[in-house]
Amino acid sequence: MSHPEAVRSGAARKPAMRRFADAAEPWFYAAPVLTLIVAVMLVPLLLGLSYAFRDIQLLNPFSGAFIGLEHFKTLARDDAFYRALKNTLWWTGASVFLQFALGLVLALLLDKPFPGRGLAQALVFLPWAVPTFLAGLNWAWLFNPVIGPLPHWMAALGILSAPDNILADPHLAMWGPIIANVWWGIPFFAITLLAALQAIPRDIYEAAAIDGAGPLQRFLSITLPFLAPTIAITILLRTVWIANFADLIIVMTNGGPADRTQIVASYIFTQAFRRLDFGYASAIALVLLVLLLAYSMLIVVIRQRLIEKD
């Protein structure tokens, strides 16, 4: 319209340029993010993998040599690691199960309209906004008989024989971080499941009610099947996430007493942060990564099997 001549010759001369520009356009939008991810996550990841085979100690200037599988041999004989592995199972299993069960109940409760639902929803989801270190400290204080009410209440109810700090009791200590984790993590499951619940078309329930299905039958034959995919993916991702989630443990017990709450992730952090043994920490991290990948694969395979069965 304004410069037909220029445009015409441009179009004739540069279709290749135009094609290149078109192909490059999405990369222009994605490039900053990709650069950042590669530089700050992928490169350190690969570097970390290489550390697993090297002797890297931050305070030892003579370290850095390639030592092959030495770390893994040490690891195979490391009792603390096996204890941490067992603790990780316990920590992850109990946390995920309780978060999911309580989160599902909460989501079902909130799915029903009632006066003040918006406010109730905001209040029960609030723990999720609490910084994890603060959640950890907060619960550690609640369990502390000096200032916290919980030991006294539990003693009064006969759960504890005396108002002691369960975080100092080797047999009970793990419950401390688990309870804090459940408190902090219920909202996540509830939010996810509530959104999935609200995505179920209402007329399906109406049709089922007209067909004569009671509330329990409607839950079993409509709600659960509709939620199943969300439940599966959420539990998978959450399991991996919680297995890696060391903040609460580091804040509340630092792995103690007597390593009874040490999980693999916090053990890695302890090796790197307190002993500054980066090589050994990376070796443990690599083992954890392999285990988590194996777990994810297993879930995917089982899911595939179940789908094929249908």
Binding site: P44, L45, G48, Y51, A246, I268, S282, L289
Partner: peptide, 20 residues
């Protein structure tokens, strides 16, 4: 790539990022 970054333990990166 982005999904992978969501899967691995971030503690793995503590040491290499410090070094970098």
């Amino acid at each position: 790539l982005m999904l992978i970054t969501q899967m691995f333990p971030l503690v793995m990166l503590v040491a290499p990022i410090f070094k970098m």
